[in-house]
Design a protein around this nucleic acid. Structure first.
Lengths: 338, 338
DNA sequence: GCACGCTGGGCAAGCGCTTTCCTGGGAGCG
DNA sequence: CGCTCCCAGGAAAGCGCTTGCCCAGCGTGC
């Protein structure tokens, strides 16, 4: 690999001059030398060693992002928003998948810190795990203490800048819609109970239902993987153990799609026999059959706002932005059967 | 940010000893010193500067991946495969989105080279653009000349290790299925014509049709964005200008979903009036309505194989693996109406 | 014509780390 | 008791780059 020294030698100048030409220093360089350097760069296919540059000029420019899983549509959209802002500002993104493993998340924060990233964005639900949360917050604090910027999406356990999707308001919207349609026998297809997102959404839902005296006991909730197959599994289980349900609330759209598929395979008609609701309004939600009634979260915007917070200079106090949820009525819900 | 020197000072040892303790050098260190160092590390929240490490010990460990767009389900799946192998081998992934912009792709290759990545994986169709291709290949060659590893997915214009999805065989499968069902009036909802993937799939399709004397003139092909909305737009256009089509082939599933949505909105019944086929078998393909008949590509496996090639030591000659396509019959296709 | 100021270019320090090589001291042996 | 050998620990070089500082040479003003 060609180095700056090689370029300088080939061009017959000092490394200092070569460096100045290559990254357009303010110090003027004679036209002739400039050309010689540029030619040498091209001839040698010289690319500056980014690590050496970073060492010499501690100008942090890359940004780290830790998401649960980019290939999950929820995070795919959020990441799209993160990327958009990062690109606009000329930042490279290092994207890390924690696969919902707190330990891996911790490791990634450490790794990103080692990479001297300018900012770290943590996207995705927090965990109900006090030990982990303390550890994480401590690591983040150490990072911020040395000038790093941190923004999180959807974690209340963080003290700094955060963007919060209105998870519990969304749950409430679902609850109210369900009541409006006359449903009282409701089952929930939930993701891992360790995720705070899950409990937030449940809390909102329960609050709305409680307003009309409808209970949502734990027996009507099934916790499973937060994806399509988890949704199908939880639905199957619910169907077997709890007959008479008229509505199923899935705590994200992927699970709802799984629920839909399972119901179809069992000959249960949606929404005639059972209404199904999702959460997130992922891009495909309107294209499944029946089109999914769900709560829209501004996913891309979540990413945009988070990256903006992370890249804007730190303000004195933590900034917390809450992005609203909105009910999207489609074809998977209808009045409760008699 | 605490440095190794800080740790050493705090522990009352030399930086050399601190370094040896921290990254478990083979050289033995007395238990007492070891503990002092470890305590200092914890106290100072020391994290080694990865760039300095990389400079000092040129052990390349991170891998760069350039995809068109991670949030596209196709690439989400491929990336999942890439990640899986990378994690197994303890490699960090830098994921870059080119958003199908050749210029950005070039920039990313340069950037990754500057990051001293151990390998670069280019995922996603090549472009019909000789100038770009030459430039790209030249850059990749320069990178490989300095010991970098390169693997590509779905590009024949690369001379090195490659994993190829059977795009044209897949097109052929679709053509044969269409003929079997008696379709002769066929429209194509295609992605950008600059992508080699598009022409490959078309070539296969045409070859199969030609076997039975069915033509596929350019007027029956609409090129649009390679996503849902592009699919809807192309379909709308095709419907208006070319009445009498009995089948629509979308060149990926996202476009097919858009086509399905548009047909539904126009009251065209699928598959009764028009059959629709997709390509890729993305995860959601079976969940839309009607469930999509499509060609399955082993997306995750594509990623797994590519990363494996990239991480395995270079062999003398280029290794090219072709992964097969397979027709998946679902509910969006039926016999041609009379 | 001389002193001074300015300008373009090079020298060298230093970013944070690893690792080779060296040193001092203790153990083992004669 | 003295010598050698071995071992743990430290000094220092060097990875590739940037940049503050210095210097030489030129032009200018008095």
């Amino acid at each position: 690999m060609a180095t700056l020294a090689d370029v300088a030698r080939q061009a017959g100048v000092s490394p200092a001059t070569a460096s100045r030409v290559i990254n357009g220093s303010s110090k003027p360089v004679a036209e002739e030398l400039r050309e010689r350097v540029l030619r040498a760069v091209a001839d040698l296919r010289y690319v500056p060693n980014a690590h050496a540059q970073l060492l010499a000029r501690p100008q942090r420019s890359v940004v780290g992002v830790v998401v649960h899983d980019v290939s999950d549509p929820y995070f795919a959209e959020v990441t799209r928003g993160l990327q958009r802002v990062a690109i606009e500002r000329g930042r490279l993104l290092i994207i890390c998948n924690s696969y919902r493993d707190p330990v891996r998340e911790l490791e990634y924060v450490e790794l990103l810190r080692g990479q001297q990233v300018a900012a770290i964005v943590l996207a995705g639900s927090g965990y109900h795990d006090a030990a982990f949360t303390t550890l994480l917050n401590e690591k983040l604090a150490a990072y911020e203490a040395t000038g790093g910027r941190v923004a999180v999406i959807g974690r209340h356990d963080h003290f700094g800048d955060a963007v919060m999707p209105a998870n519990d308001a969304g749950g409430e919207l679902i609850g109210r819609e369900l009541l409006r349609l006359g449903h009282r026998e409701i089952g929930v297809v939930a993701g891992p109970r360790i995720l705070t997102t899950i409990t937030d959404r449940l809390t909102g839902l329960r609050r709305a239902l409680a307003g009309e005296g409808v209970e949502l006991p734990e027996e009507r909730i099934r916790y499973a993987d937060f994806d399509r197959d988890g949704g199908a599994r939880a639905t199957a289980d619910l169907l077997e153990t709890t007959p008479g349900l008229t509505a199923l609330v899935a705590l994200n759209d992927s699970m709802a799609v799984g629920a839909l598929a399972l119901l179809r395979s069992r000959g249960v008609r949606v929404p005639r026999d059972v209404s199904v609701l999702g959460f997130d309004d992922m891009p495909i939600a309107g294209d499944v059959t029946p089109a999914l009634t769900t709560v829209r979260l501004p996913l891309v915007e979540l990413g945009v706002r988070a990256m903006t917070l992370a890249l804007d200079p730190a303000s004195g106090r933590p900034r917390v932005e809450t992005l609203p949820a909105e009910l999207v009525r489609r074809d998977s819900t209808g009045p409760a059967p008699d």
